[in-house]
């Protein structure tokens, strides 16, 4: 479904699907795997936690990699740069990937990013050779700063994490897209398929989402819908939309219409 000649590059990694899908909050692991397949994603996010070993014959890593999904570890739950940097190191160690979705959260009611800590953590992790994908607010200035620090992409939010409110400030996303050269990945707040289509119509390179699929009444069907929406939005962006107008512009010519008052000419 995704076009073969419309690959996008994430820090040198060519990807066909423009969706990055989270692995949390599904009704079950089976539904998660089916939904990931249905979304067409190639890259899935995981968190890193203490787990007592030897408790189960199945583990998430094997289930995901056996199906060919690449893994993007996150630093969810980190509230300081120090915390996030340690988690990134553990993730690189556990998963053998330099990719890190960097989240440094400011408070637990809004889950909005703490920009001061985020810039600090980005600086450290870039210096230590990580491919840093920072989750940030939809501020063009911050996005530019992150690019200047060496982030591999910027991940502005559409709305708060898990809110499903959709894209609250499309203009800021347009500004971000026009001001940085690295990929712009809309992260968090997407609620349904049309939100995804809009993100791509705005020119964003990818969308990262989780709850919109996981918490739908039918996650697998929603994953499929969102895959279609991503393709639709991206194709619409590439096609280049028509200009918007205040007043109507007729699509059929005026010339050659029949005259209802036509009378016999004497």
């Amino acid at each position: 479904m995704e076009s073969r000649d419309d690959l996008w590059m994430l820090a040198g990694l060519p990807l066909r699907s423009r969706l990055i899908v989270g692995t949390a909050r599904y009704p079950s692991v089976s539904v998660m795997l089916d939904a990931l397949e249905a979304s067409g994603t190639e890259l899935t996010t995981v968190a890193l936690r203490r787990v007592s070993p030897g408790s189960s014959q199945e583990n998430l890593y094997d289930l995901l990699t056996a199906r060919g999904f690449r893994i993007l570890p996150n630093t969810a739950g980190c509230y300081t740069a120090k915390d996030a940097v340690l988690t990134a190191h553990l993730a690189r160690e556990a998963l053998g990937t330099p990719l890190i979705k960097l989240e440094v959260i400011a408070d637990d009611e809004t889950l909005l990013p703490d920009i001061v800590q985020l810039l600090d953590a980005t600086r450290s992790l870039v210096r230590e050779g990580f491919t840093v994908l920072p989750y940030t607010n939809d501020d063009p200035v911050t996005a530019k700063r992150l690019e200047d620090l060496g982030a591999a992409a910027v991940m502005p939010l559409a709305a708060p994490i898990g809110s499903g409110l959709g894209i609250r400030n499309p203009h800021n996303l347009t500004l971000i897209r026009s001001r940085v050269r690295i990929p712009v990945i809309v992260d968090a707040g997407v609620g349904t398929a049309s939100d995804v289509a809009i993100a791509f119509e705005l020119g964003c390179d990818a969308v990262l989402l989780n709850s919109a699929i996981a918490r739908a009444q039918e996650p697998v069907r929603m994953a499929r819908a969102i895959r279609h929406a991503a393709v639709a939005g991206r194709q619409a962006f590439l096609a280049g939309r028509m200009p918007q107008r205040l007043l109507a512009d007729p699509t059929s010519p005026m010339a050659g219409r029949i005259d209802p008052n036509a009378a016999p000419i004497s």
Binding site: R49, R50, V51, S52, P53, G54, S55, S56
Partner: peptide
């Protein structure tokens, strides 16, 4: 009775 957490942490 007030419950309950759901934690994927193994036998901890």
């Amino acid at each position: 009775v007030v419950g309950a957490t759901m934690e994927d942490v193994g036998f901890d």
